[in-house]
Amino acid sequence: MESFEFQFSELIPGLPEELGLDCLTRLPYTTHRLASAVCRRWHQLISSRDFYYHRRKSGATRHLACLIQALPPAYTATGWKLCTSLSYGITVFDPLSQSWDRIPPIPQYPDGLPLFCHIASTEGKLVVMGGWNPETYDPIVDVFVYDFTRCAWRKGKDMPSERSFFAIGASDGRIYIAGGHDGSKNSLKSAWVYDLRSDEWTELPEMNQRRDECEGLMVGSEFWVVSGYDTERQGMFDSSAEVYDLDSGEWRVVDQAWETGRCPRACVGMGKDGKLKNWSEAAPSVRVGACGMVIGTQLLVTGSEYQGAPQNFCLMEREGGQNSKITKMSIPEEYSGFVQSGCCVEV
């Protein structure tokens, strides 16, 4: 937002409106829920989209990593470990305070997230969509939006159709999806955009080819859909990518953008040189099952040294687009589980 106007007098009694707004702008995001309950004026201000963009322009927002992570195993009252399938929740890591937390479960899925669901974030909101029902393994079209201001979930409009293992990206209040496969395991080249503000879906032009198990990446005003494969080429990952220009509404193909035959899921990034990077190559300790995400000026990468090894969490500063020396982090036991995917939330 280029301008910010809120016609409230005495947001804080005794202070000019500008100073009152400055004080509320500086409030940490963790206090927004309580601050919104102070009065109606504060609630309208703090919950508005304009206030979010004002905070971002003022440098008052914070970058968080939101991870779809395996939850700690359950135990009986006598201490025996229950033999149940893995359940996943959403873990939040704040690199500034080095704190770890977990978002409350989605009310419709109290025992764990839908399997292989996708997450993305825009305008301080976290969006979870798709995946499989954790009890029946049936694909679902559910969309859920988490509001950090209210610390609450709301139900969004369902996806237009069943779609699994698709690419996802977010920009300016919209979530973009493309590719994946349908309920019959047929790979897709269709694409859609979900508008959080209107709670509506709009179909986009199709990609040039079908791409199952592709990976999405936002680069400026472009939505990159990396690799994937057609139905007849099961598991044979393509080296190309397709790029959707948000301004022109057109796709273009980028050949030789990715390593042929390598799954791109959760480990694709963009380097300063404009070429795709594989985060599994950041360090030997995260080369297996790598998941990476840029959080502000830092890069968080998780993974294992070898199959079956414990998860490692590494953090590095990114100065001028270049990666500095990577630092291995010490993680609380309850947040050390396998990370399936993640995204950065600016809140």
Rank of each mutant, 00 (worst) to 15 (best):
E162L: 14
G180D: 00
G235C: 01
E317F: 07
I295A: 05
A152N: 14
T231H: 05
P107S: 09
R252Q: 12
N186A: 14
R33H: 11
W192C: 05
I119G: 04
D142A: 11
G308K: 10
Y88W: 06
A178G: 04
P16L: 10
T297S: 14
H43F: 12
A74F: 00
A167T: 06
K189I: 03
F165L: 09
N323H: 09
P139N: 03
W100Q: 05
D245C: 13
E281I: 01
I12K: 01
F338K: 09
W100G: 02
V219K: 06
T231Q: 01
C39G: 04
G289R: 06
G337Y: 03
C343L: 02
E10G: 08
F51K: 06
Q108L: 15
N133A: 04
P105N: 11
A152H: 15
N133H: 10
D50A: 11
K185H: 13
T149K: 02
F165S: 01
V225K: 01
I326C: 15
V347M: 00
Y88V: 00
L204C: 07
G216P: 03
A178N: 01
G156K: 05
P28K: 03
W201H: 09
D101G: 08
Q209A: 15
P114Y: 00
D255Y: 12
P13G: 01
Y137C: 15
E162A: 09
S240M: 06
E305Q: 12
I68P: 03
V143R: 05
K272D: 14
E319W: 12
Y335G: 08
V301W: 03
G179N: 02
A178E: 05
V38G: 00
T25Y: 02
G274D: 11
V92R: 02
D199V: 05
D138S: 15
G173N: 10
F93G: 00
E319N: 14
C343H: 03
S248H: 12
P107G: 09
V254G: 03
L204W: 07
L34S: 13
Q256T: 11
P205G: 08
S330V: 13
D199N: 15
S239T: 07
V301C: 00
L64C: 04
P310A: 11
K272C: 13
S85Q: 12
S324V: 14
C66V: 15
Y229L: 02
T76I: 02
S58I: 03
T136A: 09
G289E: 13
F6C: 09
W192K: 04
E346A: 12
V254H: 01
D255W: 13
I175G: 03
A178P: 02
G180S: 04
S47F: 07
S85P: 02
S285T: 13
